[in-house]
Each structure stands twice: as C-alpha cells, then as structure tokens.
Design a binder for these strands. Structure first.
Lengths: 209, 209
DNA sequence: ACCTGAACACCGTTCAAGT
DNA sequence: ACCTGAACACCGTTCAAGT
C-alpha cells in the first residue's frame, strides 16, 4: 500500500513550513512506482497517481523520468535486481542446480507477480547478459551439453518456468487442475522440473552417442 | 487493415441516401475488433477507434456490447474458435498426437499473435471444458498415465508451449538464441517437445514401477 | 535547475434526449 | 428499439511561464 499519510510530521518548525521538498529523484520515483504496481497491478499505475503518492505535481516527474515507458523500464530493472541465483558452487550436481535456478525465478515472480506478467508479455525482460541466462548456460555446459545445444535447451527450461508462473499467477493453473492449496502447485512445479530434467538426461545420452 | 473506404457506393438512389445503416450486430463488432487487434495490437483497439472503423457513433456500440471487457471476451471466443485440434484418430501413437496438439496451439498463436499475448497474461483463456485441454487429457490417458497424473503432466506440456510462443512472439526467444530465421525457431520448438516427451516416458516408467 | 498550471489529444462510460 | 451529442472522470505529454 502506498499512502500519503506516511510523511514525517515532526513538531520542530522546519524552515520551509510543513511542505518539505520531497527530494524527488529517479530512485525514489522508481521505488514508489514499483510499490504501486506490486499493490495494484500495471493498470493501477499512472503518472498522475504516482505523482499524488509522492505528493508532487504530475509534471514534476518529467524532470526525472523521460516518459512512462522509461519509468516501466526502471521499475523492471529494480525488480530484476531482487533476483538471487543460488548457484556459483560447482560441487552441487547440475540437476539440483537447474532446480535452484527455476526456484529463483519463481520466487522473483511471486515477489512481483503483477509486474512479472507485464514483463513476460513484453520484450527485453530476460537478457542474454543477465544473471539468470548466464547461470542457466553455465550449468548446462557443466552438465556436458555441447555448446550448440546449450541455448536451445536453456530456452526450453526458461519457457517452461515462464509459462508455469504465468499460468500460476493469472489463475488458469489452479483452474485446470483442481489444486486449491499452494503446496499442491509447488508439487506440480517440481513435477515439471523433474520431467524436463529427466528428458534432458535422455536427450543428452542420445546426442552423446 | 480496417478501412472506412470499403463501403458500397452504388449509383442507385438508396431510400436512406448515402448513409445506409451498418446493420450493427455483436458479430460484426467482434469481427472488426479482432481484425483491429490482429493488426495493431491490444493497445490499438479502443471503443472510439472501433466505432470509427465501423463508421458509427462510439456510443452506438454500447447497445450491442456491454463494455470493453465483454468486447475483449467476445474477441477471444472468436479467436479460440479458430483452434483446430488434429487428433481424434486413436491409431496415431500418443507422442505424435502430443506433438500435434502443441503445433495446433502454436499455429493459433501465430494467427492472432497480438491477442494471444494478452490472453496468456489474463485468466480464463484455457478452459477445462475447451477442446485443447480435452484433447490433451485424452491423449495422456491413452498413453497409460494414471488419472491422478494427467492434469499435472498436461499442465507441464501446456505451460511449456505457452511460455514458448510468448517468448517467440515478444522476441526474447530470438534474442537469447541467435536464431534469426523461422526455421531455426521451429527446430527449437521441436526440440522442446522432444525433451518433454522423452521425460514424460521416463517418469511414466518410474510411476509404473 | 527545478517546479507548475493550462492545454491538447486521447481514453471508457453514463445519461438524457432524439427518431 | 436503436442511435446520438454532451458531459464526466480519467489518461500521457508538451510547453510556456514561474521561482
């Protein structure tokens, strides 16, 4: 919830009366906008409502953010920064590491569910240079996959996880299965990863022959 | 392209002058709106632009369609009606049949790419009673899967295909892989289906023990 | 340098008035 | 029964004017 009542209201007589300057910065704007999206969804965010939440004239925002598209891009950067890939220790077996990457993504999706739906539907979310794709490719190479197959297989894993969290968040997953509780859906996610990893093993064997 | 110049302009003196009634019906409205979305995307559709394309006052639409949400629902119904599941002949092996279902979905996604992105991001697209989910469950049961697993596994296949077409349409797939041509992406899709089906086979074996 | 009001071109939707 | 203009409450964004 973004509330305008959270402002400091101290007794000492500030130099500028009770209308202290909000110290408007891109960081503050992005953070507030992300909070609004997390709370009310993409449609709940507008330049004018954002300005109201910051207690500022709508037009002031345009001195720190070029336009709404750039604002959304800034929000995305902020959210993706919350992604934590557990990997980096090469002694855990690669199937377990793939599972961890999948869980990292899904956790991020739960943290910013409203935004992730928007991000998955628009280009430029997963980047070739990002930590997620890097970790994925690294793990697959460690699993013995030839370089030519790494991208292809990595994409299969990524698209499955994307599709899953999307269906999970928009509710169609709970609709198709009769899964009412979250634990059931967790198990479905695990089952999907199992199938992919099992399939990956068999394809790996085939290509190696 | 929806153009307003496509109206008949005959020489005979119509009773109502050159402003003939557009015979506004829900069907015509939905079809025109779908064409607009296919051409310009979801954001390219507005009640006012739709009315302009139909050469009608914006407010007239509200006598045939309750609101924009209902309009989008009607468009979706229209698009989903284009889905053609090839199956129904039980002599083809189940892996091939699964592949065909996946291709049916992907073909639909290509036909209405702009709309499908919207549909996947919003609830209610894949229905339990729909032909796609029905065919999927039927095939999986035929593959010898216990009833308890059918939903779970069907969901894995569906979410993979959803995630794939989404990444394909919004361009992030072509970005991550260096795949420039469509044929390469076709092969990636095939590879994904192969992995899932292979994994499905092994899980099937495990559960059977 | 930063803020702001007015204005422009759009939205979806309601409602009373027309035929 | 169907259509329509005016109006309302919203948008994103530009721009000239203020400090």
């Amino acid at each position: 919830m973004v509330t305008r009542s959270g402002r400091t209201r101290q007794a000492r007589p500030a130099r500028k009366e009770r209308k202290e300057p909000p110290h408007l910065t891109p960081e503050l704007i992005h953070a507030t906008a992300l909070a609004m999206v997390d709370a009310d969804g993409i449609d709940g965010l507008s330049m004018r409502k954002l300005a109201a939440a910051l207690d500022v004239n709508p037009m002031s925002l345009y001195h720190h953010v070029p336009n709404k598209a750039a604002l959304l891009q800034g929000i995305s950067r902020l959210a993706v920064a919350d992604l934590r890939i557990a990997s980096a220790d090469d002694d855990t077996p690669w199937p377990e590491q793939l599972r961890q990457i999948g869980h990292s993504f899904r956790t991020l999706a739960h943290q910013h569910s409203k935004l992730i739906v928007y991000l998955l539907a628009h280009p430029g979310f997963i980047q070739r240079e990002g930590p997620l794709w890097g970790a994925l490719c690294h793990t697959l190479r460690r699993a013995g996959l030839p370089d030519a197959e790494v991208g292809r297989i990595g994409n299969v894993l990524l698209t499955f996880v994307s599709g899953f969290v999307l269906a999970e968040i928009n509710g169609s997953l709970g609709d198709l299965l009769d899964a009412a509780d979250a634990a059931e859906i967790d198990r479905d996610f695990e089952a999907g990863l199992d199938i992919l990893i099992a399939g990956l093993g068999s394809v790996q064997r085939i290509r190696a022959e």
